[in-house]
């Protein structure tokens, strides 16, 4: 093999080895798991929030038809009175409740018609539970108490997980098209582009009512 090729491939091996050395590290899995214990316990925080603080807040949630009416009358005042947000921007979040009839059940959501003087359509998310709606609508998380956004985001992640793993599986067998349900949940609304029809509700509780 000519010298030039040996140098070329040698250099390549050195570069790959250097990159590899600086790319991965190996530790004992037990040590890594132990060190994780000292980190912010988002799951514990979310569970405590869900079990101890959220029920009271849910009881005082605004009826979704009242919120819609208030926004139709005076959006600014309605957003101030009924909604919360941790961040600046147009997105506001509200805890809502209501009674609705199930129009259809899809793999991803429930299509419902809210019962009110002027019934309107909405959607209850059943599969893809994302975002900060639950955390922010609750108004129970104070931005100042967290040193970083990662911890804040992990609270949303854990709250959404509770909905996915506990609330929806428990509710799903009881739901049928045409059935009447009572629900509490969180909604995200854009102050600048208010589209209340077919608003998506992240459920906190769904119960059939007779």
């Amino acid at each position: 093999m000519p010298m030039k090729k040996i140098l070329k491939y040698g250099l390549l091996v050195v570069i790959v080895a250097l990159l590899g050395y600086n790319s991965v590290y190996i530790k004992k899995l037990s040590d890594v798991n132990a060190s994780k214990g000292a980190q912010f316990n988002a799951a514990g925080f979310a569970a405590q929030l869900w079990n101890e603080k959220l029920p009271a807040k849910s009881d005082s949630a605004v009826a979704i038809s009242v919120l819609k009416g208030a926004i139709d009358d005076d959006a600014g005042a309605a957003f101030d009175k009924y909604t919360n947000a941790l961040a600046i921007g147009n997105y506001r979040y509200a805890l809502v409740k209501g009674i609705a009839v199930i129009d259809a059940i899809t793999a991803d959501d429930l299509k419902i018609t809210i019962q009110s003087a002027a019934p309107f359509k909405a959607t209850v998310a059943m599969e893809f539970i994302y975002g900060n709606a639950l955390r922010d609508a609750s108004g129970l998380v104070n931005l100042q108490e967290f040193p970083n956004t990662s911890d804040l985001n992990s609270i949303s992640e854990e709250l959404n997980k509770i909905v996915r793993q506990k609330i929806i599986p428990a509710a799903r067998p009881m739901l049928k098209p045409g059935a009447k349900i009572e629900f509490t949940g969180a909604v995200e609304l854009n102050k600048e582009h208010i589209h209340f029809d077919d608003v998506e509700i992240i459920p906190i509780s769904i119960k059939p009512v007779s």
Partner: peptide, 10 residues
Amino acid sequence: DTYIGFTILG
């Protein structure tokens, strides 16, 4: 009982 971690470069 091994954990292979990755750096940002990795």
